[in-house]
Design a protein around this nucleic acid. Structure first.
Lengths: 231, 231
DNA sequence: ACGATGCTACGGTCGCCTCCGAAGCATCGC
DNA sequence: GCGATGCTTCGGAGGCGACCGTAGCATCGT
């Protein structure tokens, strides 16, 4: 198995529309059953089973059996990053092609959603902008930095931040997504902020999708404490 | 054209072994002719032509005609990052599968090579380690920071660094690659360091591959100035 | 002008892979 | 126990796409 062949195999696995839909659905970091993924992909359960078997043996998804359900999730965070980067290219290429479908079904996704382990969409960008505006983070072209004040600010709001032992500073990863085409906070900081948002009830998951709803409490916190401008 | 369909299309384009080889070869950021790519992929010119046409119309590669040659390159840096992230997943998955081929042909690639616009391989990792050791950069799990001393140090060596206007600090992007499985410097800093290395004759490109050779002068500079430990 | 080189267009073959229907196995609820 | 649910395996039909041979067009060197 040469390096290129494995590369092609992984890409080909992501290159089927049905499997792409499933991987897309798993991008929020949750574990979904084969039946749910079947409905998402729009194919019959037996076809889905075959797809999931291939994804599992390749190591892209991990399977966990619970009773008569089999829960599938992305095997590693690096796979989520890979899917992210492909979506990024797709967003770059979309204007050249036809316009992306912007139906009402996408509206809630555009406003706020999870991107594997962090918040994305208008909300994610607004939070990143607000944190930068207040001097809590500094966002560069390749990466970002959480300032001393930012660490204190986030800790005060209950966001669990692990400070690296050696460094006094914390670097964070920006993530460009398809809807806003702007940077939002990813990496461990983004994950901690997202986890805290769910824990504190600032956002809650919407039905069975990647979309999240901003609660009244969350809207207040995001506006008053973070200084984020939300539509 | 819905978002998922475009995602699948891009993945499928990268999912063919012949096209994967071509994209792999283009990862060093240079522009290659159809004939070169044909030899790399191991297929006939007419098959190559078809593949390149599909890659070009999709927008993954851009074409530039010069005489009777047609030069192809990756259309955007985001595409290089996408390929990088797929290679990263492939490297993660490789131990589970069979061992990667580590023939003598790969030896020079493992020692030093370009990764689109920055240096990778043992050299890339050694430079990153040395810069971190000397306190010129601080590498975190998600991103890194170039310190004030690091900026001065790199400028002194002729590395062109654009300091962002607003921030006093420069964040940089780490890149994990398949051979070392360790972080090396990517992003604008990595690109500047790589460009300077070619310009100053510290490294030179090896025949027609991604591999680069470390010149005697380069070996001296990397060891004495950077403090990098090279085999 | 002439052949050589680099690349592309067309037509046909072949193989892989996606998909579903039918059937089988495990688990859950009653 | 017994049916219902969730998922998988098997088998076959269908279609897409990769590949090459042949042929044609543009460009370069002499």
């Amino acid at each position: 198995m040469t390096s290129t062949a494995l590369f092609a195999e992984i890409s080909a696995l992501a290159g089927d529309p049905a499997r792409a839909s499933m991987l897309h659905a798993l991008m929020d970091g949750r574990a979904l059953t084969a039946g749910e993924l079947s409905r998402v992909a729009g194919v019959t359960p037996q076809t889905t089973s075959g797809h999931l078997a291939r994804l599992a043996t390749a190591g892209l998804v991990s399977v966990e059996q619970q009773g008569r359900h089999r829960y599938h999730r992305l095997a590693t965070p690096s796979i989520a990053r890979m899917l992210e980067s492909i979506m990024r290219v797709a967003a770059d290429l979309a204007p050249v092609r036809r316009r992306l479908s912007v139906g009402p079904r996408d509206a809630s996704l555009r406003l706020a959603r999870t991107c594997y382990d962090h918040l994305a969409g208008t909300l994610g960008v607004a939070l990143a902008d607000a944190l930068a505006e207040q001097g809590h983070v500094e966002l560069g072209p390749d990466a970002g930095i959480v300032t001393e004040g930012g660490i204190a600010f986030l800790r005060q709001l209950g966001v669990a931040i692990d400070r690296p032992s050696k460094s006094r500073r914390i670097a964070c990863r920006p993530c460009l997504d398809w809807s806003e085409r702007r940077a939002h906070l990813a990496g461990s900081i983004g994950a901690a902020l997202c986890a805290r948002s769910f824990e504190a009830g600032w956002v809650r998951r919407l039905d069975g999708t990647r979309a999240v709803a901003i609660t009244p409490k969350g809207r207040h916190v995001f506006a008053e404490r973070f200084g984020a401008v939300l539509p």
